[in-house]
Amino acid sequence: MRDYIVNSVKYWADEYHIDGFRFDLMAIHDTATMNEVARELKTIRPDIFVYGEGWTAGDSPLPVEQRALKDNVSAMPQVAVFSDDIRDAVKGHYTDATDRGFATGKPGLEETVKIGIVGATAHPQVDYSKGNNSKKPYALSPTQVINYVSCHDDLTLTDKLRASLPDKDDSMRQRAAKLAQTIVFTSQGTPFLFAGEEIFRDKKGVHNSYKSPDSVNAIDWSLKQKNADLFQYYQELIKLRKEHPAFRMKTAGDVARHLVFDKKENRPGVITYMLKDNANGDSWKEIMLVFNGNDAPVDVNVPKADWLVVAQDGRLVAKGLGKSSGGKMSVAPCSALILACEK
């Protein structure tokens, strides 16, 4: 079976030039098979991406230590896994539609969000014992982790926000969507975006729509005009990540050195950290990020400097919204504040 799997993916890579392979319920396979898959594919083209779900969705006859689980990804250096840590911590647990997460005002999830921010690598300021899904760092490098808040399985982010914020309107839910995706796209690792999320696509509350008709699954493209502000925010967020390698560090050592959380900022629903010293060769010397998941504004102390304001109060422009000299700054409810300093 291993031979069949390896030869199949090699054929698809050679014949159809497929450059990414996602394995559903990857932990049904063993680590040896996944390592051979990755090794053979990367001899065809080094940038082929191999990733999968690091769980089995049930039991397996394989011994636990041989399963291609999320917790065993360190035994598969060229394979990546989805982060259920950041997914459930940011938007609320996937099994309960009404459960809230960090981006929707639920306190106590800060440390689990941080696990996602550092790409599940060992970091001196992250207490894994407080993690909801993981109790130890499992990735050798952030390149082994895929951060996301929704995909084809379970509720879309839009449906989740409508179920967990029934007392809010869609404009407030879109603020939460912006905050959630800002956390994902500025975290170390690989961001994953569900098609249509950028225009607030829903699936009419259907959790798993593999057997649903087009009336549920089709993307309603009129939403692009209706939710143009959200679409443009996503565009700028993607542009920000592409233009700044500080958000794309490749080693755990670099993440531990250059990503520094503000431990003085120890309030429920608030995460503050810096990307320091031109991280990963970035043109920005320092980047300060503040995430406020609360329903009320919070004040933060920003070091005095010539800051470029990149994101503030639900707005984001990769090249900057304006300038700030630092000091005490207010972070709007359910929003991200991103500042950058070149010197």
Rank of each mutant, 00 (worst) to 15 (best):
K239V: 06
L240A: 05
L240R: 05
L240I: 02
L240N: 03
R241K: 04
K242M: 06
P245M: 00
A246F: 04
A246R: 09
A246M: 08
A246W: 05
F247D: 08
R248W: 05
M249F: 09
M249L: 12
K250D: 09
T251M: 13
A252D: 10
A252I: 10
A252N: 11
A252R: 12
G253P: 12
G253K: 13
D254H: 06
D254M: 06
V255E: 05
A256S: 15
A256G: 15
A256M: 15
R257T: 08
R257H: 10
R257Y: 07
L259T: 09
L259R: 10
L259P: 06
L259H: 09
V260D: 14
V260I: 15
V260N: 14
F261D: 02
F261A: 01
F261P: 02
D262I: 03
K263E: 15
K263D: 14
K264T: 12
K264M: 11
K264I: 07
E265W: 00
N266M: 14
R267N: 10
R267C: 06
R267Y: 10
P268R: 00
G269F: 10
G269Y: 09
V270G: 14
I271D: 02
I271L: 04
Y273M: 06
L275H: 04
L275V: 03
L275P: 04
L275Y: 06
K276L: 14
D277V: 00
N278D: 04
A279E: 12
D282K: 09
D282V: 00
D282A: 09
S283V: 11
S283W: 12
S283Q: 14
W284N: 09
K285V: 02
K285S: 10
I287R: 08
M288G: 14
L289V: 12
L289R: 12
V290D: 01
F291H: 14
F291L: 11
N292R: 04
N292F: 03
G293T: 03
N294S: 15
D295G: 14
A296W: 13
A296M: 12
V298R: 10
D299M: 07
D299W: 08
D299G: 07
V300G: 11
V300A: 10
N301P: 00
N301I: 00
N301R: 00
P303M: 06
P303T: 07
P303E: 06
A305E: 14
D306R: 14
D306P: 12
D306A: 13
W307A: 02
W307I: 01
W307T: 02
L308Y: 09
V310K: 03
V310H: 01
V310P: 03
V310E: 01
A311G: 07
A311K: 09
D313G: 05
G314M: 01
G314C: 02
G314N: 02
R315G: 00
L316K: 05
L316R: 04
V317Y: 13
V317F: 09
V317I: 09
A318R: 07
A318N: 07
G320R: 11
G320Q: 11
G326D: 06
G326R: 06
K328Y: 04
M329D: 08
M329L: 13
S330L: 08
S330T: 13
S330Q: 12
V331R: 04
A332R: 01
A332Q: 02
P333N: 10
S335K: 10
